[in-house]
Amino acid sequence: MFDLNDTAMFVQVVRCGSFAEAARRLGLPPNTVSRRIQQLETQLGTRLMQRSTRKLTLTGAGKAFHERCAGAIDGLVEAGQELMTGSQEPNGLVRVATTADFFDFFPMEWIADFLAEHPRVRLDFVLGDAHADLIAEQIDVAFRSGLLTDSAYVGRQLLGIHSYGMVASSAYIAARGTPGTLQDLANHDCVTSAHPSGRTTWRLTGPDGLEEEVQVTGRFNGNTAQSLRKATQAGLGIALLPPAIAKLDVQAGLLVPVLPQYQRASKGLSVLYPSRRHLPSAVSAFIGLVLEKLSAVETLPEVFRLG
């Protein structure tokens, strides 16, 4: 039977990304930590990590073992902490990976209220449009759009599919006219995400339920929803914007709908976390916060451009 202490040490090494940092946190010499992990590998009969002078990389067996045991180790630690403190209160650090625009649409006041309600929880946000490696970057929870295809993690859909619509500024429409058909977009400036070819294909569903596509170009590209929004407001072209943005800007008179009979389905929003069992209470509490807020604001999920 392998030693659970060695297993806990393995989990710490993975989260720290190095033997030296894990040893520092555990208060042990680095060579002791390395020897104990080697001992665990010998007991399991398989290599868990590939070691180099620059970084540690989990093997396939190491990833699978970490996925199965990390939550259990966290559960044991959390149970001990709860017994020692006599409290079921969520505590500890939660690292969250999400889109660069997260706080443009998820008010900081919600975060402040959450931290006030859970004074023993700390939040560390990793913001960006690239998919984070949950294990390598020590991420506790990530929010992504689209279908979940990475079987190494645990995921569930928070919100389903909605529709994107096309919008433009009144100034742009006054200067360039309103397109009458989808193919007319080829003669307009369109605000899109950057593409190496300089052209972007929009696939939209028409009033008959059939999907059509059109190639569009423009003089402005951006990689965040906010950059596309501001460019569209400035009259730089027609854009496909998330409904949370489009609806509010149309209501405020900042943008007008374009060919509203054509829509593009969004990818929905899912939550992803690395462990199947014993999700730390602080992580569960944060996921609960996001669920509560997104359920109350029906159109908000479309701003999460994580896929």
Rank of each mutant, 00 (worst) to 15 (best):
L4W: 12
N5I: 02
T7H: 03
F10R: 02
R15L: 13
F19E: 10
E21P: 04
R24H: 14
L28I: 06
P29E: 12
P30Q: 05
N31H: 05
R36Y: 04
R36F: 02
I37L: 07
T53L: 11
T53S: 06
T57P: 09
T59P: 11
G62P: 06
F65Q: 00
A70G: 13
D74L: 07
G75H: 04
E78M: 10
Q81I: 06
E82H: 03
M84V: 12
S87H: 04
Q88C: 15
L93G: 14
A100S: 12
A100H: 11
D101G: 00
F102N: 09
F102Q: 01
F103L: 01
F103P: 00
F114V: 09
H118F: 15
P119R: 04
P119F: 15
V126K: 04
V126N: 06
V126P: 05
G128M: 03
I135C: 14
A136R: 04
E137F: 08
Q138E: 14
V141K: 00
F143L: 02
H162F: 11
Y164F: 06
G165H: 12
M166L: 14
S170Y: 09
I173E: 10
T178H: 03
D184W: 00
A186F: 08
D189R: 15
V191A: 15
A194M: 04
V214G: 11
V216G: 07
R219Q: 13
R219W: 07
N223A: 08
L228N: 08
K230T: 13
A239F: 11
A239Y: 06
L240R: 02
L240K: 01
G253D: 14
P257C: 10
Q261R: 01
L269W: 05
V271R: 00
L272S: 10
Y273Q: 02
R276E: 15
R276D: 07
A282L: 02
A282E: 07
V283T: 07
V283E: 04
E292N: 03
K293S: 01
S295V: 05
L300C: 10
P301C: 15
L306Y: 13
G307H: 09
G307F: 00
